[in-house]
Simulated scan of single mutants.
Amino acid sequence: MEFIGQLSPRFGSEIHPPSGPPLDVDFVHRFAAAHEDAGFDRVLVGHSASSPDGLQVAAALAASTQRLGFLIAHRPGFVAPTLAARSFATLARFAGGRVAVHTISGGSDADQARDGDHLDKEGRYRRTDEYLEVLRRTWTATEPFDHHGEFYDVTDAQTDVRPEQPIPVFFGGSSESAYRVGGKHADVFALWGEPLKETAEQIASVHAAARAAGRTEMPGISVSFRPILGATEEQAWDRAHDVLDRIVAAGGGGGSFTGRSSHRQGHETTRTNVGSQRLMAAAERGELHDRCLWTPTASASGAAGNSTALVGTPETVAAALLDYVDLGVTTFLLRGYDPFDDVAAYGRDLLPLVRSGAARTERTALSRT
């Protein structure tokens, strides 16, 4: 199992108004250290058209941490893939390999336009397909190469800096185009937290796309949740309803990576982002799904990102996460509404239960074979 947290450049969440400067250097260092102390494997360094530069954030934090990895959100199309390959390879060398790329083709037309990108959604996915082909080839080619495609035309491309070990490529999306491109390229395909049935259907779609691309080894699967824990079930649900009330009172919350109102960003995103549409559809079908998946937090925030909650005691939530492990999920991205307190609670009470449960499941499966 791999656990990923989510970094933010200043204190804030859907229930805590952002405080401090847009890039609070002291907070970012303390927040990364909290994830490392809690036993997270990586943190996601997010991206938007107004966010701090993720590569520089990760470079600074790599120098102040020992073990924590960095999953850097990256939008193809704003720098050449050959330059991106060198940038990520350089950072991976300095960070001792603790670097991964989270490929985001772009779910919000409005946010893409802020950086001058006016390609439609299908065009962005075609560009991502070609971008990742050139990116990986730059990392691995031992001789100069040419590439002449729809979006990129490079001649005699080569690099003197390569990663010592492969840089994992994560890929996010929930549309047919996302399955097609991510199934072809992703080491790990990232989904938002939907009910078990719908998650199983998405995993099947990703695997079908991978097989159609000629792959024999399937991508890993990551799923994102917002756990809300309590010492008892009653305490957990009391806290969940308090969180929901505060999200609603805040007009949807303001907890994006940049501090931009996630309520505003959510309504932008929902029009074009299939992932957000799917979360909203799950919320319309009911508030509570499976063991403890709770959707009102998604609908209240406009489903602007990973916004469905798992509510209960650590044992209940761990059991729910293990239900997803049984579907083939290999990675969880977990973030809370109370940034520091939740990170500490996850590390103390939740992650060990899931890791031990997953280990038992693996040992049982191996014994049966």
Score class of each variant (00 low, 15 high):
residue 220 G to V: 06
residue 189 F to T: 03
residue 13 S to E: 09
residue 193 G to W: 06
residue 294 W to T: 04
residue 11 F to G: 00
residue 269 T to C: 09
residue 223 V to S: 07
residue 309 A to D: 05
residue 275 G to M: 10
residue 202 Q to T: 04
residue 336 G to I: 06
residue 28 V to S: 14
residue 201 E to D: 15
residue 157 A to E: 05
residue 335 R to H: 12
residue 271 R to F: 03
residue 327 L to K: 03
residue 5 G to C: 09
residue 82 T to N: 04
residue 43 V to F: 04
residue 325 V to P: 00
residue 183 G to L: 10
residue 151 F to D: 02
residue 336 G to T: 02
residue 135 L to A: 07
residue 200 A to M: 09
residue 21 P to M: 10
residue 186 A to D: 09
residue 173 G to R: 00
residue 13 S to I: 12
residue 282 A to C: 10
residue 169 V to F: 06
residue 182 G to D: 11
residue 17 P to G: 12
residue 195 P to Y: 10
residue 307 S to I: 07
residue 295 T to A: 08
residue 13 S to H: 11
residue 217 E to Y: 03
residue 136 R to A: 11
residue 285 R to G: 01
residue 302 G to Q: 13
residue 232 T to M: 02
residue 181 V to P: 03
residue 177 S to C: 08
residue 345 A to F: 01
residue 259 G to W: 03
residue 36 E to N: 04
residue 313 T to G: 06
residue 331 T to E: 13
residue 211 R to N: 05
residue 36 E to M: 05
residue 180 R to L: 14
residue 207 H to A: 09
residue 256 S to H: 03
residue 33 A to M: 09
residue 221 I to W: 00
residue 111 D to E: 14
residue 241 H to L: 11
residue 150 E to L: 11
residue 86 R to L: 13
residue 267 H to S: 13
residue 15 I to Y: 10
residue 34 A to G: 00
residue 36 E to I: 06
residue 337 Y to I: 02
residue 320 A to S: 14
residue 20 G to D: 14
residue 16 H to G: 02
residue 47 H to C: 07
residue 183 G to N: 12
residue 31 F to S: 08
residue 6 Q to T: 04
residue 107 G to K: 06
residue 358 A to G: 06
residue 91 L to R: 11
residue 205 S to I: 03
residue 165 Q to V: 15
residue 177 S to A: 15
residue 355 R to N: 00
residue 329 V to M: 08
residue 257 F to R: 02
residue 191 L to S: 06
residue 75 R to D: 05
residue 225 F to A: 05
residue 110 A to I: 15
residue 193 G to Q: 08
residue 220 G to A: 14
residue 15 I to N: 04
residue 37 D to I: 02
residue 317 V to Q: 03
residue 313 T to D: 07
residue 111 D to W: 10
residue 107 G to S: 13
residue 29 H to Y: 11
residue 180 R to M: 11
residue 106 G to N: 10
residue 268 E to G: 00
residue 18 P to R: 15
residue 84 A to G: 07
residue 261 S to K: 08
residue 87 S to P: 00
residue 64 S to G: 00
residue 3 F to R: 05
residue 209 A to H: 10
residue 222 S to I: 01
residue 7 L to S: 07
residue 217 E to C: 06
residue 18 P to C: 15
residue 157 A to K: 04
residue 37 D to Q: 14
residue 71 L to Y: 04
residue 221 I to C: 06
residue 194 E to W: 08
residue 89 A to P: 08
residue 114 R to M: 12
residue 84 A to C: 08
residue 200 A to N: 08
residue 274 V to A: 12
residue 304 A to D: 10
residue 306 N to V: 06
residue 39 G to T: 03
residue 352 P to F: 04
residue 60 A to P: 01
residue 122 E to C: 01
residue 353 L to G: 00
residue 53 D to I: 05
residue 106 G to M: 09
residue 37 D to M: 05
residue 35 H to W: 03
residue 61 L to M: 13
residue 311 V to E: 04
residue 9 P to M: 14
residue 188 V to Q: 09
residue 72 I to R: 10
residue 148 H to V: 08
residue 313 T to M: 04
residue 152 Y to W: 13
